[in-house]
Write a protein that binds this DNA or RNA. Structure first.
Length: 680
DNA sequence: AAAAAAC
């Protein structure tokens, strides 16, 4: 019965989708169209075992297998009890076990499988190889003047820069407050012309249509160029990727190939020594940063690479062998590569932690410490370390300090997240009503029926991977063009899902926390917190997927009694950003606060809130937390602030660097009044 | 408690 009705729905949907995409017969996702026929052979997707079934979009490709693949119905439909064995197809799996590999017995096909996994980037990589004729010459970097641009390549240029639309609403940027604190903070710039950039970088900035520096760029570019360490609190979409890539690559171009490269072939193996290392907490984010790096490295002798899990290590190693000066990586795969002797970190002069608060949390910090401390990376002070995140709780700042040397703290006003250009709505929705309410929201957006709406995307966050599967299945059965992304899907599925969402083929994406951070997707009009996260930082990151770079956005959050622990922070955030505050939320927050107060009084005899993470963005805790004065001084080891020579860089400024803790602009008034406890 | 991240 159920199966029959499912089939009816499925076939209807299939037909509808087919109509909408203008294809007859099998539905082919856009990124696979116009490819060599071998890409689309059905048996390409045939699995070696049931767990290995992978498809471009779950449930769109073919008949019965499709149905089996989508078999996880019971998760969201408690009353149906599941479809027996089909259920084990997805939900019975251990976390992360359905990556493309990791199980024995099918190694023969791995190469092929992986090749497909990263298909959508291969085109450009081929172009790049052809264009440069770049070969690493056995691990030795190219000679020649690194400041001089190589020849143009129209095909590569188109593939890198595309339409070139940045999506940045530059006019909205003018009033964004920025505050820089730290000793002898370099003066910020107002336009790219104020810094001497190499011709290559200037050209690429132009190609990328970055007409004016964004606020984070205005501050970060001179700070990085002055060889200072940096902790920057800025949203994705504020232009932060370029804010570190531009000055880093520019310095690399200026410095040219390093003269003291380690031996070329230790153990007979080609080993690469990147000059810059960028670490990111999710694979998709790593890819995104890599693509940006390819833009700014265009026509240069500098070759960016990316390594991350879930994709073929052999392919990645082959790519590394062609040369790697700037490496973007997720931590696990990077350690894999260093263990294998494919990557040496001895020459890393620039270390970037993107989404640093995540990188330094409990799950990641041990790996980061291993990378930074146990792999011969130049120590603090001999390298430049830059950290970026939308939120910097005090705890993270304390932890981060051991990776940093006399750093500048940059607080960029929240361009596109919690500020007024995102309308935040908190709605009380009981657990049982969530789906129905979600349908109402989606109907309002007129997305039903597979109408591709690339300029109006809806991102739905849930708390668990199982929940993501269940909700996607539900929406799909209801006829919505939906896909999903979470850590239990294969890398192939994840990348396809993202691509399908970005392009508007499936303008609804159900996602777990994997998509909360850093992903820069233009045109996300609506973020829906189907499940609220459990901490306010995560909330800030999530809603930051919309209202990007000065454009308008909407964030709707379903709240119910399960989210009681969020009431206080949520209220604070929502009222601070001039949003409508539901009365019930104020009441709950008051209740919770009273409970906490009395509990604290019993425990400590005082009420107290953790400083620094109570808000959302963050402030430089050094300025507020006088208890850390001593240890901070120790951390700086009595070093004269900025022990590097100012004269060594290629930047000219309108004015000299300021000499003390300075907030260029102030948020609230009490930023600049603190004592200069560095005692300079 | 869950999610992410190597195999």
């Amino acid at each position: 019965m159920e199966i029959t009705s499912y089939w009816a729905t499925f076939q209807n949907n299939f037909a509808a989708l087919d109509l909408n995409t203008g294809h007859s017969g099998k539905y082919i996702p856009p990124h696979l169209r116009n490819r060599p026929q071998t890409q689309q052979q059905p048996n390409q997707y045939k699995a070696n075992n049931a767990h290995d079934v992978r498809e471009p979009y779950r449930g769109r490709n073919s008949g019965s297998r499709n149905f089996e693949q989508r078999g996880n119905f019971s998760g969201g439909y408690a009353d149906r009890g599941g479809f027996g064995s089909a259920n084990s197809q997805r939900s019975g799996r251990k976390p992360n076990s359905d990556n493309a590999y990791g199980r024995g017995g099918n190694s023969y096909s791995r190469g092929k499988e992986f090749e497909r996994e990263s298909n959508w980037r291969d085109g450009r990589q081929d172009l790049e190889g052809e264009y440069r004729g770049y070969r690493n010459n056995g691990g030795r970097y190219d000679d020649g003047d690194w400041t001089q641009p190589l020849a143009k390549n129209d095909a590569l240029e188109r593939s890198l820069f595309g339409s070139g639309h940045t999506g940045i609403n530059f006019d909205k940027y003018e009033d964004i407050p920025v505050e820089a604190t730290g000793l002898q903070c370099p003066q910020h710039i107002e336009c790219f012309d104020e810094v001497e950039l190499t011709e290559i970088i200037r050209n690429n900035i132009e190609l990328a249509r970055y007409t004016r520096p964004t606020p984070v760029q205005k501050y970060a570019i001179p700070i990085v160029s002055f060889k200072r360490d940096l902790m920057a609190c800025a949203q994705t979409g504020s232009g932060k990727t370029a804010a570190f890539l531009v000055p880093i690559l520019n310095q690399i171009f200026e410095n040219g190939p390093p003269k003291n490269m380690p031996p070329v072939r230790p153990g007979g193996r080609i080993k690469q020594y990147p000059l810059a290392l960028v670490l990111a907490p999710t694979r998709e984010l790593a890819v995104q940063i890599y693509e940006e790096a390819c833009k700014f490295a265009y026509r240069s002798r500098v070759r960016p690479c990316v390594v991350y899990g879930g994709a073929d290590p052999v392919q990645q190693m082959k790519d590394l062998d062609k040369g790697c000066h700037l490496l973007v990586a997720t931590p696990g795969r990077l350690l894999d590569m260093t263990d294998r002797g494919k990557i040496g970190l001895e020459m890393v002069k620039f270390l970037v932690l993107d989404e640093a608060d995540r990188m330094l949390d409990m799950g990641f910090e041990p790996q980061i410490s291993r990378i930074v401390m146990e792999n011969n990376m130049p120590p603090v002070g001999d390298r430049q370390t830059l950290m970026f995140s939308a939120t910097f709780p005090k705890k993270v700042q304390e932890l981060a300090r051991r990776f940093l040397d006399n750093y500048i703290f940059l607080a960029v006003g929240r361009v596109g997240s919690t500020s007024e250009n995102i309308t935040q709505k908190i709605v009380w929705v009981d657990e049982i009503d969530k789906r129905s309410f979600l349908l109402d929201l989606l109907n309002g957006a007129e997305l039903k029926g597979g109408v591709a709406a690339a300029d109006s995307l809806t991102l739905v966050f849930v708390e668990t991977k199982k929940g993501a599967d269940a909700l996607e299945t539900f929406l799909y059965r209801e006829g919505y063009p939906v896909t999903s992304i979470h850590g239990d899907r294969s890398q192939r599925e994840r990348e396809d899902a993202l691509q399908s969402f970005r392009s508007g083929v499936t303008p609804i994406l159900v996602a777990t926390a994997v998509a909360a951070r850093g992903l820069d997707i233009p045109n996300v009009k609506h973020v829906i917190n189907f499940d609220l996260p459990t901490d306010i930082e995560e909330y800030v990151h999530r809603i930051g997927r919309t209202g990007r770079v000065g454009n308008l956005g909407l964030a709707t959050s379903f709240y119910n009694e399960k989210n009681r622990n969020m009431a206080v922070d949520l209220l604070e955030l929502v009222s601070e950003t001039n949003q409508d505050v539901p009365e019930w939320l104020s009441n709950i927050a008051k209740e919770v606060q009273n409970e906490q107060r009395s509990a604290n009084q019993r425990k400590f005899g005082s009420s107290g809130r953790k400083y620094g993470s109570g808000g959302f963005g963050s402030r430089d805790y050094r300025q507020f937390d006088r208890g850390n004065q001593r240890s901070s001084n120790t951390a700086n080891n009595g070093r004269v602030p900025n022990g590097h020579s100012y004269g060594a860089n290629n930047f000219s400024y309108n004015s000299q660097p300021s000499t003390a803790y300075v907030g260029y602009r102030s948020y609230g008034g009490n930023y600049n009044t603190g004592p200069d406890w560095f005692g300079s």
